[in-house]
Amino acid sequence: MTVSNEYLSHWAEIREVIPHTAIEYTFRMAYQGAVQPGQFFQVSIPKYGEAPISVSGIGEGTIDLTIRRVGRVTNEVFERYAGERLFLRGPYGIGFDVELYRGREVVIVAGGTGVSPVRPVIEHFYWHPELGRKVSLIAGFKSREDILFAEDFTRWQEQMDVILTVDNNNGDPDLRQGLVTEYIPALAIADPARAAAIVVGPPAMMRFSIQALLRRGIAEENIWVSYERKMCCGIGKCGHCKIDDVYVCLDGPVFNYTRAKDLAD
């Protein structure tokens, strides 16, 4: 029996390049197929390498891949433009099941590039306002220059409570100042016992945000997180993303907090 070669990537056309910051761009790729928010692709550029990139947007016949210009793998992508192509394979992993949030208050806390994997969830609520009872979004970046999806935040404010904070707003009236965790205690949550939360970002930010959410009475089983780990295969082989008995590529990257809380790197 011959199995298919999952390691072979497929060309996908770059439809559009959307710059966010000096080092972060979104590549809108032509893509046909089912993708779940929170899933990722192994994105490669021949001669440089492959990296796991979360889907930051799901469109009609397109997916968005937001790529940060760090390391050898991702620098090459930035030298390519619309009309060019990238090698992809995927999607991989278990993403967010947006059905779980139907009719509930949802709190989304995201830090830095952690906004990328939750963006499809936010977009889902934006385009389907009837689904969520109320959506609160707290997003934190280092500075104004680091903000991803700036235009989206403006748009999202139409449908949801958005708190956009940076470490130091230098008096900018459009931005809050400080860590995302500082805004959790004051969030208006009508029914914390039923409310759901999604937390994605750097490890320390996630840890403290979850603590703050738990203090607000949100139940552990109603919190979901997404993990970023090194991955070389996406299919449970390479071992880099393993935490305890979990493979982030197979069992995640999205985990319910009841599972995630005991995972120790």
Partner: peptide, 15 residues
């Protein structure tokens, strides 16, 4: 266990 069953099977290992 890892290369044939944990997730999708590995083409290179299997062959």
């Amino acid at each position: 266990e890892i290369y044939l069953r944990n997730g999708l099977p590995d083409f290179y290992y299997q062959r």
